[in-house]
């Protein structure tokens, strides 16, 4: 049971990262290899504003988290404007390599600042872990579940109820038609990057007390998010969430129950699934459950 809760916590982060990838890809056709680095930046920024665990106390946590999300979101938008936007006609492969460059720069800058130390953040609410159904679950994990759930509901309302959200979907479905009714698809490239970066930063901020933050956590997160996305069938946000949580639970079980001799290989597990799914069911496993796009 404890492993299940740990898996669900990881799964929530996978889901948020995967959603970021999905939003960017649906609007721009770019696979953003820096997505996981935005999670890392969100964690680092929250720690910077709130004060590292055991160090000086900074801003109140809620302020720090909101500030971190806003800063990273703005950074995502700015990076898109300055780096990708001028070359957006270059084709997906070149743009993908450019996001690899962005990822290198982000990781490098954080590495220079933190010199490869890992930092923790204090729990959102102090207190001992709870016992539920015979397993233990930390209060921070409950925060992760709550924040992820709230973010998903907010996203759903945003895409289905607001004008900007509907314009987003218009850009995904048909950029040309969207531009005919007064929506500028190219502007939504920037919005998509900003939104996805903010979402990832939120994930980073809530997970920071659990996992701590290091400069190089991004790549694995990007790939886990990608597994979630692929599992979920590439177009459906519901699928991504199910895929992300499912992957997280599977990871938790693998970490918990793998025979000792194979523990060293546990890191490779999500990628084995990734390749298996890409090869066997490129349209995703959960597609039939959720046919709708964002």
């Amino acid at each position: 049971m404890t492993f299940l809760f740990a898996g669900l916590t990881v799964g929530a982060i996978n889901a948020l990262t995967g959603l970021g990838l999905l939003i960017v890809y649906n609007v721009t056709g770019v696979i953003n290899f820096a997505q996981g680095d935005f999670v890392m930046l969100g964690a680092m920024a929250a720690i910077l504003f709130a004060g590292a665990n055991g160090h000086r106390a900074g801003l109140p946590l809620i302020v720090a988290v909101v500030l971190a999300v806003m800063c990273v979101s703005a950074l995502g938008g700015i990076l898109e404007r300055t780096v990708l936007h001028p070359r957006r006609k270059s084709g997906p492969v070149l743009l993908l390599i450019m996001t690899v460059g962005i990822s290198l720069v982000l990781e490098g800058v954080v590495l220079v600042i933190t010199s490869s130390q890992s930092y923790g953040l204090r729990n959102f609410t102090p207190g001992p872990a709870l016992s539920v159904f015979g397993g233990t679950v930390s209060l921070q994990s409950l925060w992760v579940f709550g924040v992820t759930g709230a973010a998903l509901v907010a996203l759903y309302l945003f895409f289905s109820r607001t004008r900007v959200g509907k314009a987003f979907r218009a850009c995904e479905i048909n950029p040309l038609a969207a531009s005919l009714v007064g929506i500028r698809p190219s502007r939504y490239w920037t919005y998509a990057f900003a939104l996805a970066a903010g979402l990832s930063a939120l994930a980073g901020a809530v997970i920071a007390p659990v996992t701590t933050a290091t400069y190089d956590m991004g790549l694995a997160l990007t790939l886990s998010g990608f597994v979630a996305w692929v599992l979920g069938g590439l177009v459906s946000p519901v699928g991504v969430v199910v895929g992300g949580v499912g992957l997280g639970v599977a990871q938790g079980m693998v970490n918990g129950y793998l025979p000792l001799g194979l523990v060293a290989y546990a890191n490779a597990f999500p990628f084995v699934i990734l390749i298996a799914v890409l090869v066997v069911r490129p349209n995703g496993i959960i597609r039939s459950l959720a046919e709708r796009r964002v």
């Binding site: 390599i97 460059g101 962005i102 290198l104 720069v105 490098g108 220079v112 600042i113 490869s116």
Partner: peptide
């Protein structure tokens, strides 16, 4: 950048990669 020590090359790689792809693909 005294704080960076020997970690700077990784930033350099990223910058070079982006600059080349943007201006000299």
């Amino acid at each position: 950048i005294p704080a960076g020590g020997t970690d700077i090359p990784i930033v350099g790689y990223g910058v070079v990669l982006i600059v080349f792809l943007m201006f000299l693909p």
